[in-house]
Write a protein that binds this DNA or RNA. Structure first.
Length: 332
DNA sequence: CCTCCACAGGAAGCCGGGGGAC
DNA sequence: GTCCCCCGGCTTCCTGTGGAGG
């Protein structure tokens, strides 16, 4: 039944993106000056997860690349590269300028000089999960680099903007904000139809079933596509076509898979904290730390735990209610 | 109203790992 | 090998805030 498993992967980047034409056009027009060698403003893509921000950013850059020979691009995931140094390193890496840069023995100054000396073709970088950056200093260095333009991606840009100091604020105030709303049922259905056409045998699934999946995914394309794949895999073992019973089971599986993927990026200590919080309705810092330090061998300090919790909150794995004294942490 | 305390998060410094230079 | 340097995770120290209780 499955003819091409790759297109059923939520991470897969299709040749033709369906939906989001307006966003693609807007992003292209923001980046157009850069491609033509003129200074361009940055773009900030924001919205809930599974709304196609990363996909549209990569897709748009691919298209620009096809129409322009002289263009460098780079994708940086700030969850993985969150320090000042590693972001710079990754960005120079996209220019093949890191050959003689060594992680441990090259001062950041050298990387900065090299970046500021850049005078090649236009360079467009995607900073995905930009709200995960340790410090926004690196953004300042980037906005004042010639020939470099940025696409910033963040769930909640307001949280990110509050961390900007004045000089950065004035530079990024003119950035074009592109908002990504949750997909409508029709839009999700269209996306699923496209994936089903390339990834499944004809007639393996009905439009009504795709609509049902779209409805269950509540606007999140990752959930929708994951559900379709789970249902197809389940059906593959048992029948010729996807049955409704396969759909029912696939939704929680797809959601669990996404959650599992998120959790796998956590460290051991972060995972322990996450598990404690998801096992309760809501918990205070004091109780949480007591449980945590009883559970692990060499507990980190409270200060470090606060950093972890901030990270988990940013990543929407847990939520916190209240400020200061009396704050509680709870599952989402 | 005042003091105490739980809690958040910034700043600075420590230290272990790891690679280059010699 | 040994020395030196750098990064990044971590701790320590600190300040600010606001609810609880005298």
């Amino acid at each position: 039944m499955i003819t091409d498993a790759r297109v059923l992967d939520p991470e897969f980047l299709p040749n033709d993106v369906v939906q989001r034409d307006a966003e693609i056009n807007l992003l292209s027009s923001v980046l157009r000056p850069a491609v033509e060698g003129n200074p361009s403003d940055s773009a900030v893509l924001h919205g809930p997860s599974g709304t196609g921000k990363t996909c549209i950013a990569q897709y748009t850059l691919d298209k620009l690349h096809q129409s322009t020979l002289e263009l460098n691009t780079q994708y940086v995931n700030c969850w993985e590269d969150h320090s000042h140094f590693s972001v710079l390193y990754r960005i120079l890496d996209g220019l093949d300028k890191t050959l003689d840069i060594h992680r441990q023995s090259t001062p950041q100054e050298v990387l900065l000089d090299r970046l500021h000396d850049y005078d090649g073709p236009p360079y467009i970088i995607i900073l995905d999960e930009a709200d995960q950056l340790d410090t926004t200093d690196v953004l300042y260095e980037l906005v004042r680099t010639r020939k470099l333009s940025m696409i910033l991606i963040a769930n909640d840009p307001d949280v990110m903007y509050t961390r900007f100091d004045d000089r950065l604020d004035s530079r990024l105030r003119t950035a074009t904000r592109i908002e990504f709303d949750a997909y409508s049922i029709d839009a999700l259905t269209a996306i699923l139809e496209d994936r089903a056409r390339w990834g499944l045998h004809p007639d393996a699934v009905t439009t009504e079933q795709l609509q049902w999946i779209a409805d269950a995914a509540v606007g999140d394309a990752r959930v929708a596509i994951g559900t379709l794949r789970q249902a197809a895999q389940r059906a593959d073992r048992e029948s010729e076509t996807i049955l409704d019973e396969h759909l029912e089971a696939a939704v929680p599986e797809a959601k669990a898979e996404i959650k599992q993927k998120n959790i796998s990026r956590l460290t051991r200590d972060q995972r322990v904290l996450y598990n404690i919080i998801t096992d309760t309705d809501s918990i205070s810092m004091g109780d949480l730390y007591d449980q945590y330090s009883a559970e692990v061998e060499n507990p980190k300090t409270k200060r470090m735990v606060r950093n972890y919790l901030q990270k988990l909150t940013h990543y929407n794995l847990i939520e916190s209610i209240g400020e200061h004294r009396g704050r509680r942490y709870q599952p989402v």
